[in-house]
Amino acid sequence: MLHALVMGTSLAVFWLLLSGYFTSSLLLSLGALSVVVTVYLALRADKHDGERVALRVDPPLVRYWIWLVIEIVKANIDVAKLILSPTMALSPRMVRVKATQPTDVGVVIYANSITLTPGTVTVDIDDDEFVVHAITQAMADGLTDGDMGDRVTALGAR
């Protein structure tokens, strides 16, 4: 019940922000109707597969995002330099990286962080090991020696 209330409220806020209609009673009631229908469909889908992923935004996650943005900017500049250099000194590697995160969501955050950072892309996942393609040896070393995995693990179960 609380779940439905929270979802309904956030959907209503989302509708208001996207539509920008705050006064017309006809449009507002149609918006409320669409919120009710969406909550009903979501609860019905929940009954079917029972998989819920709650997004808990707390200070450690926000701190991780800020750190990730800085890493992404650094990696972007490195890859941009590589593309623009006349010789293009590529040394691609396929490295295996161990995921030590306790939950599936943690593993997904780690894999997507690797992919979001230019220079490294998660190509395959078997159990708790990623196959990662890195565009240079330095990028591969940065991933295997770096602390991105530890930082995601430190986020804990979520």
Binding site: A80, I83, P92, T120, V121, V123
Partner: peptide, 26 residues
């Protein structure tokens, strides 16, 4: 522009993934 140029210039599919990443993020 750099990302698109990389998508054209890099030698194979896997390296082009990284160029597409530049466009999609920064």
């Amino acid at each position: 522009l750099i990302g698109s140029f990389g998508l054209w210039r890099l030698p194979d599919f896997y390296t082009r993934l990284h160029a597409a990443g530049i466009t999609d993020t920064l």
